[in-house]
């Protein structure tokens, strides 16, 4: 990834927003029966924090992200961004999904421009699209179509599409889950670098304890469905972090124990 002077110049985003999740419960109606997915979850995130949400698969982490994004409304409880109630999606909280979900009929540049276009400010802000593409190192692919990209490149475009909006909260729903391990490690480092430079609050859903520990300064472990907060762990280590760090290895053993996997590790 090339951090050019241009990209630096546009990195003017204000710091991240605070996020308050207060006694949130949520449930799905499946054929008339109610399936509880979140039970009384309360998390308070400081501006600029990098919080990883870790839990068994299907426990409701992604549901929580949808609530934070404003895509769904909780059955009970409140979510607030900088003291303001979250009622609907807003470009200050942008989601990067597990699948890049690029629009196949748009070129890379047009995909990144999506947010600005939807908000009707693209005409005066075209340079932000170029800067975001620079930021993820894909300027030379601006005219390519999504089917011409590799999985890692597509996810980078999705990241650029999110960052071009200068989000206050970046919501990452296992964005690296489907990448090969090498691309994954590279992109983890890129994510940390971007977060440090831009200062947005980051919420990362993952099922990989190591990823959570390398990236986040706070790891929240969820129980099985319906998800409740099981542990809230501070990770006080400087960046860049090393996978072999004994401190992290110890935390990892603890976390895996919380997830019921201590016997195998």
């Amino acid at each position: 990834m090339v951090a050019t002077a241009l990209a630096e110049a546009v990195a003017h985003s204000a710091a991240g927003a605070a996020l308050d999740i207060e006694q949130v419960s949520h449930a799905f109606d499946i054929d008339g029966t109610e399936l509880a997915v979140l039970s009384d979850v309360s998390i308070s995130v400081e501006p600029g924090e990098f919080v990883a949400l870790l839990g068994p698969s299907g426990c409701g982490k992604s549901t929580l992200l949808r609530l934070v994004a404003g895509l769904d409304k909780p059955k009970a409880g409140r979510l607030r961004e900088d003291e303001e109630r979250i009622r609907s999606p807003h470009p200050s909280r942008v989601v990067v999904f597990q699948d890049p979900t690029l629009f196949p009929w748009r070129s890379v540049w047009d995909n990144v421009a999506l947010g600005l276009e939807a908000q009707g400010i693209l005409k005066s802000q075209r340079h932000r699209v170029d800067a975001a593409l620079d930021l993820v190192g894909l300027s030379s692919f601006r005219n390519a179509y999504p089917h011409q990209l590799s999985g890692g490149m597509a996810q980078r475009v999705a990241l650029a599409r999110a960052l071009v909006n200068d989000p206050k909260i970046l919501i990452l729903d296992e964005p690296l889950g489907k990448l090969d391990s090498l691309t994954r490690i590279t992109m983890q480092a890129e994510l940390v670098a971007l977060w440090q430079r831009k200062g947005f609050t980051t919420l990362l859903v993952t099922h990989d304890a190591e990823e959570a520990l390398v990236l986040a300064n706070r790891v929240i472990v969820f129980s099985d469905r319906p998800a409740r907060v099981k542990a809230d762990i501070r990770v006080d280590r400087p960046y860049p972090r090393h996978r072999g760090d004994p401190y992290l290895a110890d935390l990892r053993r603890q976390i895996l124990g919380l997830l019921g996997l201590d016997a195998t590790w």
Binding site: A69, G70, L71, P89, H90, P91, R93, V94, V95, F97, D99, T101, F103, L114, G115, E117, A118, Q119, R161, N165
Partner: peptide, 22 residues
């Protein structure tokens, strides 16, 4: 796919944008 609408909505798309551009 609903995923396209979700992406567009989180980026600030209004209903008219969802019809015409998605």
């Amino acid at each position: 796919s609903n995923a396209y609408y979700d992406v567009a909505r989180t980026l600030g798309a209004k209903p008219s944008f969802l019809v015409l551009k998605v």
